[in-house]
């Protein structure tokens, strides 16, 4: 293409940082996304990102470090959501909806009142991959490594608790602890990738690579490396396209993921499509004895 140099943006440090952070974000979201999708937690992921936004807004306005303020808020929300989702009394969907949208609303009010003075809030809402610094890269890298370590070191208990929580509990797997671990990892992932992709789109990066990977494999082990790979490639391609087209980066990454999903959906045939049937976007906690 005339006047189009694919390597041109790489001369800028901000773009190199953007590519690194989005590829890392794609990988970590793809990894934790496997559990999000298979446990029917997509709605929780979506709600959690909205809840964390409230914490980010509060931290920003109060002058507290973003990661500390939003992080504590996020983990507290995550654990609360996990707890609520295990009960059937209220209905998990409704309870999550109330908790997370209330938190999001706090963020929106604070944004409306103090938004001009706190630009970082806008970044949280829509993502600002081109404005990331070294701190953001380190944060995503650390959370990615922690998640990877947890997934490897607790591979079988996490798989068992995800596939068959009732029997896992009988077999001695600390199911509640595994759920808390996953919610903590999910909260941390949302926290560090939110500024890259944005609150409004982060749940798509949690879900799309994992569900695309699911259509390509019937093995949990393979899905676990395929999904982060798809997430990274999606983020890499999306970030590059966004530079050349001047489209918002978060939205472009998500659109690339959606296109890839569509291609796989069409080409994988009925068998692949059937494998994602029943992967509900709403949490359906199993009834387990306390």
């Amino acid at each position: 293409m005339i006047g189009f140099d694919i390597l041109e943006p790489y001369q800028f440090e901000f773009f190199r940082n953007a590519v690194i952070v989005s590829v890392l974000a794609g990988a970590v979201c793809g990894l934790i996304g496997v559990y999000v999708v298979l446990r029917g937690m997509s709605y929780i992921g979506h709600g959690l990102s909205h809840a964390v936004f409230g914490g980010a807004a509060a931290a920003s306005v109060m002058g507290i470090n973003y990661f500390l303020g939003a992080g504590l808020w996020g983990i507290a929300s995550g654990l609360l959501i996990g707890r609520v989702a295990r009960r059937r009394i209220i209905g998990a969907d409704a309870a999550i909806g109330v908790v997370t949208t209330a938190s999001f609303a706090i963020g929106l009010v604070l944004f409306a009142v103090y938004g001009q003075a706190h630009k970082s809030l806008e970044a949280s809402l829509f993502g600002s991959v081109l404005g990331v610094g070294r701190g953001d890269i380190i944060a995503v890298l650390v959370v990615g490594l922690v998640t990877l370590l947890a997934v490897v070191l607790q591979y079988r208990p996490l798989l068992f608790a995800t596939f068959d929580p009732d029997v896992a509990q009988v077999t001695g797997v600390p199911v509640a602890r595994m759920e808390a671990l996953l919610m903590t990892l999910l909260s941390l992932t949302v926290l560090v990738t939110m500024r890259v992709i944005g609150v409004l789109l982060i749940s798509a990066l949690l879900v799309t690579p994992a569900i695309t990977a699911r259509m390509l494999t019937k093995s949990f082990g393979r899905m676990l490396w395929l999904s982060p790979l798809i997430g990274s490639v999606t983020a890499f391609v999306g970030t590059n396209i966004s530079y050349h087209t001047d489209w918002p980066t978060g939205a472009t990454v998500i659109l690339v993921g959606a296109v890839l999903f569509t291609v796989v959906f069409i080409t994988s045939g009925a068998k692949g499509r059937r494998s994602v049937d029943g992967m509900d976007h709403h949490a359906e906690p199993s009834l387990r004895a306390a």
Binding site: Q154, R156, P157, R214, S219, F220, G221, S275
Partner: peptide
Amino acid sequence: WNFPVTVGEVVLMTRTQRPWP
């Protein structure tokens, strides 16, 4: 039945004394 696990993965998941893949 839509969960992506093979027969071998199902049988082995119970061996949580050795938790890694």
